[in-house]
Amino acid sequence: MTTLSSDFARQSSILRLACGAGGGEVLPAGLRGGVVAIGNFDGVHRGHQAVLAKTLQLAKERGRPAIVLTFEPHPRSFFNPAQPVDRLTDAQEKAAILGLLGFDAVVEQAFDKAFSSLTAQQFIERVLLERLGASEVITGVDFHFGAKRQGNPEFLLQAGEKYGFGVSLIEPFTDEGGAIVSSSRIRACLAEGDVVQAAGLLGYRYTLASRVIKGKQLGRTLGFPTANMALPEQTGLKHGIYAVRFRSADGSVYDGVASFGRRPTVDSDGSALLETFIFDFSGNLYDEFCAVSFFAYLRGEEKFDSLDALMVQMREDEAEARAVLASVKPLSLLDSHLTFSGR
């Protein structure tokens, strides 16, 4: 079992098991024979939630544990390490969200050379049967598995008939406009700074989680102390200023305004940094694993002629963010847990 370090873990109870192609942590006897959802589930968005809801429904009907089988790292990152996927949720966040949804365990299958070499038949035998003892499998209609993607939905259905486990294939989920909800579509929204549309597709506000680090502490001297987070280079969120909610490691939630980018006024050559000015807060957050949820894009990055001009704009940003956040409401029960609980 892996203990999560972020506050998401305090809100949910889920067992995380890490497995390699040849073995790994042993699935407890009480979790074998479960109903298993299979997928990457990056973002655990509304399309994923359709697969997951069916899994939870069947698990409840059959009196079986609800299990998620996912893969770490993302397969696309394994096959193209020079261009890793911009993850909407890392392994910790994803597992915690799955716990909030009601799952009993997430099995994180190591996607490495050994695993990628397994044939489709070996995947069925070693992972679904030997390791999980799956009684039922739920996945999308486009699921492929095994070396060179040789396993397809038809292969999975035939294996289920042969070995005695059920198979449910879920059609792609479409939004109110009839467009398919996908992780790549959400990333495209974030690249444009459209966190509102991204939230509509996710079913909750887009959230970034990381450990708070020490910065240059310039904001503190200007009266705007910030909690700084370094993020993966591939983070595709548009640089700019956002109205946000900040969750500290103890579960407390605060409104705030955040800057994501390279700080052109004071440090134009620096790497991208997420800096959050937390409203009505005083305390030490250094080295805590915290989360920032994005509610609205306020403006792009600007280079100001002076620090005084920057401070004037920061006060305007604060006022606008406070106004935006004063009227927000949860998009879903999941969104309420992630961005409203603890207030």
Results as ranks from 00 to 15, higher is better:
Val292Met: 03
Leu325Ser: 07
Arg220Glu: 13
Arg247Ala: 12
Asp255Glu: 07
Ser271Asp: 15
Asp317Met: 10
Leu56Ile: 10
Val35Ile: 09
Val36Ser: 01
Pro232Glu: 09
Tyr254Gly: 11
Phe155Trp: 02
Lys216Asn: 13
Glu61Gln: 09
Gly178Asn: 02
Arg10Asn: 14
Ser327Asp: 12
Ser210Ile: 00
His239Cys: 10
Gly251Asp: 14
Ala96Asp: 15
His45Arg: 13
Asp194Thr: 12
Arg322Thr: 10
Ala309Trp: 03
Ser282Pro: 02
Pro28Phe: 12
Val328Lys: 14
Ala326Gln: 13
Val253Arg: 13
Glu275Ala: 05
Glu302Pro: 00
Gln234Ile: 08
Ala114Ser: 14
Gly164Val: 06
Leu231Lys: 04
Tyr286Glu: 04
Gln109Tyr: 10
Phe246Pro: 02
Thr221Ala: 08
Asp317Ala: 12
Ile38Trp: 11
Ser341Ala: 15
Gln92Arg: 06
Ala319Pro: 01
Cys19Val: 07
Ile124Thr: 07
Phe111Lys: 01
Asp112Gln: 05
Lys303Gln: 14
Arg220Cys: 06
Leu307Phe: 05
Ser182Arg: 08
Leu298Glu: 13
Thr2His: 08
Gly39Asp: 03
Leu88Asn: 06
Ala21Gln: 10
Lys329Trp: 10
Thr70Tyr: 05
Glu130Phe: 01
Leu208Asp: 00
Ser268Cys: 04
Leu101Arg: 02
Asp267Ser: 13
Ala37Phe: 01
Lys94Pro: 02
Leu307Tyr: 05
Thr2Lys: 08
Ser182Pro: 14
Thr265Gln: 11
Leu331Met: 07
Ser5Pro: 00
Gln150Pro: 08
Glu318His: 08
Arg62Ile: 00
Leu334Lys: 03
Thr139His: 14
Gly146Ser: 11
Phe143Cys: 02
Ser117Ile: 03
Ser77Trp: 06
Glu318Gly: 03
